[in-house]
């Protein structure tokens, strides 16, 4: 039986189901308990699980991240919420220098099964310091996995998988502007394996790859293109590290054209990595250069027109697809 629930509820169900299953799982972060979550993701969880397992922290990202990392090394399975990933930068030392390297440095003795999650990327006119999308930055780091879902269904299955089955640190990227998105989600438990992309819309003429909230741009562009008789296949990466190259390559070998839509800054972005690997492994299949739309190569400014100008949108995506298809206008 499926029922319609919001993205935030899907995340809450994922955490709650895993916390009911496993005493070692706990949730920690700013405002997660008594305030019921800055974005209401953890609403009601304190009431169900109590203050031992749903833990409010001071505004102390480096400190509570370190506590999570240490706890994960010592037999627990923490879920650490960042109010936004922008604040996690304060804790990058613990993520990059400790969590991601612990297994390697200890010669395989000490693992760090921890999930970091929170809102990521832009969410309106929040200014430069609350608007960065971090997938590419974290995807650069060996030892961790990076998940960035676009739907409540995927978010629930992926988060459950990360909490229950992943023994390596997982960065789980959500979006403040998606928390209210609703969708039919089964009542029965399910899991979605990390590292598997999902073809959200099959097509034959061109491949569009995206993830997280930019999937909306990609799917809307595909719908526009369909009106003009162009069949776009839209791939939702869902996991950024590791990348599901099999799904990407199979699609490109079919459509021979690739456009990537992402909210990262352009330098060494997710699209950079995909482009390198597609040209290496599917060079002969390409009928046009790979193209991409990223966030502008600048901090995100405040003015509404500057926000719009800096982020990928449907008209530019449609235009780019037409360019790789060598269609005029």
């Amino acid at each position: 039986m499926a029922r319609s629930i919001a993205f935030r509820e899907a995340l809450r169900e994922a955490m709650s189901e895993e916390m009911r299953r496993d005493e070692r799982v706990f949730l920690m972060g700013e405002e997660v308990a008594e305030y019921n979550g800055a974005y209401k993701v953890s609403q009601g969880m304190l009431a169900e699980f109590g203050e031992k397992r749903v833990i409010d922290t001071p505004i102390s990202e480096l400190g509570f991240t370190a506590v999570g990392v240490g706890a994960a090394q010592n037999g627990l399975r923490p879920v650490v919420e960042f109010m936004t990933w922008n604040f996690a930068v304060l804790a990058l030392d613990q993520i990059l220098n400790t969590a991601s390297k612990m297994l390697a440095m200890s010669g395989g003795q000490i693992s760090c099964p921890i999930v970091f999650r929170g809102g990521n990327g832009s969410a309106g006119q929040l200014g430069a310091q609350h608007s960065t999308a971090f997938e590419a930055l974290y995807a650069n780091i060996p030892g961790i996995k990076v998940v960035s879902p676009s739907t409540p269904y995927d978010a629930k299955g992926l988060l459950k998988q990360a909490i229950r089955y992943e023994e390596d640190p997982v960065m789980f990227m959500e979006s403040e502007v998606m928390y209210g998105d609703k969708m039919e989600v089964p009542e029965e438990e399910y899991y979605i394996e990390l590292g598997k992309a999902d073809v959200k819309r099959p097509g034959t003429d061109v491949t569009i790859i995206s993830f997280n909230k930019m999937m909306k741009v990609a799917l809307s562009a595909a719908a526009e293109l369909e009106k003009e008789g162009i069949s776009a296949e839209v791939i939702d990466l869902r996991t950024i590290r590791p990348l599901d190259m099999e799904t990407i390559l199979a699609s490109v070998r079919k459509t021979n054209r690739l456009v990537i839509v992402e909210e990262q800054w352009p330098f060494a972005s997710v699209s950079s990595e995909i482009s390198y690997r597609v040209q290496k492994d599917a060079f002969d299949y390409l009928d046009a250069p790979i193209r991409r739309i990223t966030a502008a190569d600048a901090p995100l400014h405040y003015a509404p027109n500057l926000v719009a100008a800096a982020l990928p949108d449907v008209p530019r995506t449609v235009k780019l697809v037409k360019e790789v298809m060598y269609l005029k206008k």
């Binding site: 506590v67 999570g68 220098n97 400790t98």
Partner: peptide, 21 residues
């Protein structure tokens, strides 16, 4: 539990080890 190379980082990690106990 190591052997950590970033000055002071293990103070936080160690606090987490204690949290788990």
């Amino acid at each position: 539990f190591g052997g950590h190379g970033i000055v002071g980082a293990q103070i936080g990690t160690g606090t987490g080890l204690a949290f788990a106990e």
